[in-house]
Design a binder for these strands. Structure first.
Length: 115
RNA sequence: CAAGUAAGCUGGACAGCCGCGUGGGCAGUGCCGAAAGGCCGUCCAUGAGGAAAGUCCGGGCUCCGUAGGGCAAGGAUAACGGAUAACAUCCGCCGGGGGCGACCCUAGGAAAAGUGCAACAGAGAGAUACCGCCUUGUGGGCCUUGCGCCGACGAGGUAAGGGUGGAAAGGCGAGGUAAGAGCUCACCCGAUGGCUGGAGACUGCCCAUCGCUGUAAACUCUAUCCGGAGCAACACCGUGGAGGGACAUAUGGCUGGCCCGGCCGUCCCGUGGAGGUGGCUGGAACGCGCUGGCAACGGCGCGUCUAGAUAGAUGGCUGUCUUAAAGGACAGAACCCGGCUUACAGGCUUGCUUGCAAU
RNA sequence: CCGGGUGUGGCGAAGCUUGGUAUCGCGCUUGGUUCGGGUCCAAGAGGCCGUGGGUUCAAAUCCCGCCACUCGGA
């Protein structure tokens, strides 16, 4: 992921939950906030409620893959947090992908489609 | 063939494209840096489990404490013999229980060291006479006048029978007796001691004595074992900050109109928050062969190196094959080992038992 | 990684130490009182004591395994 660093600190997540814009679907919740950097910062939250370690890992890996494949479509300069909900465990990859893209559209993160 | 029982194996394979962690190589006069080095690119190798889980035991390792050891407290374990670094694990075996059987289950020391508890029911729960049975005394009733029968009150004997209970104090039979009673006898059961066999627990067509409620996963007693904490241990580096010392306290800067006042420097020592590095994987290791042992397990030889992350690397798409199905069994290393417990779609192998059929 | 606590009618709690009858408050149902409702009075229903085993004559209670929730420390 060329234009992205990961977010690790708890207080960074807390700031986004309180001050960022948000959008939600049955599978995911998305928080974002504009920053002054030239690159995006990305964080994932997969709570214990989702399931055991294997299930949490599977969801997180799928979400990271979705982000990686669509990174070039997003406008840089945002902090983004993706929160997985309980239903995400039972969702297929395509459903998660569709859900993520529609949420990104809602928050205006995607570049205008060119051509 | 069906039903069952025990043990073990497996937990998809291969290929392509994009992407990730670790280790190594190469290259660009690429980028950052004073340098060491780091980043980017590319190639190669490698990359979760049988339970990695729960964190229930045992050990290694590290630190703390301790001259060395003992006692107490607290905790754990509990037939016997062995295996092991050790264990509450494993193997063998004994006793008890279940099953037609293969086989399975078993916290299995001491109740005669002492204390406690045993509700309700029942006459009575180491203690007993409620009903009953028997003997006898007193005073009645009846008529068939007898060594008669009936019931009442009292004194005593009895543990056979009744009912209660989880349990009534060895069981059954015979003798015996007023009625009864291990009171006596035969058989059986149990306990203790001796003898026999066994390494031992234990055992027996043996002998003697005795007949004792249950509960210790109630307190307790006996024997054995245990110092405490845990890789967020621990060691090192450590912008800043707080502390101490040395130099300088002249000039300068900031606050300020000016004076007074306050703050600001460099080096060393030491503490050590955030963060970083080590600890970090070669080990009671794995595979094969030979060998000792009934087995657990041990010995010898040869070969192999096989995750090491730090918000945490295995994902996405596609094809082929095996398959009834792989799309969705259970499930993700976090210092490392030995066990235990729990979860698990299915598939496969072997031994044994019972039943049916055929030979 | 280490250590502790809780689970009992619909809700909140006692009972567990020292085993034998599951109790209390609110709520619920029915009846009465009232013109009607509340209050009050009387009666009643409702609990595999989280789950699976074991010890015991007998387990909510004692012991072991598991599940869920929760607290503390490094």
């Amino acid at each position: 992921m060329k234009f992205t660093v990961t977010m690790k600190r708890n207080h960074e997540f807390q700031r986004l939950y309180h001050k960022g814009k948000s959008a939600a679907s049955p599978y995911l919740a998305l928080y974002c906030r504009k920053s002054r950097r030239g690159q995006n910062r990305l964080g994932f939250t997969v709570g214990k409620k989702v399931g055991c370690a294997v299930k949490r890992n599977r969801v997180r890996r799928r979400l990271r893959e979705i982000y990686r494949l669509h990174e070039h479509e997003l406008t840089p300069g945002y902090d983004i947090v993706v929160v997985a909900r309980v239903k995400a465990v039972y969702a297929k990859y395509a459903q998660l992908e569709k859900s993520f893209l529609s949420l990104a559209d809602k928050l205006g993160l995607r570049k205008k489609a060119e051509g």
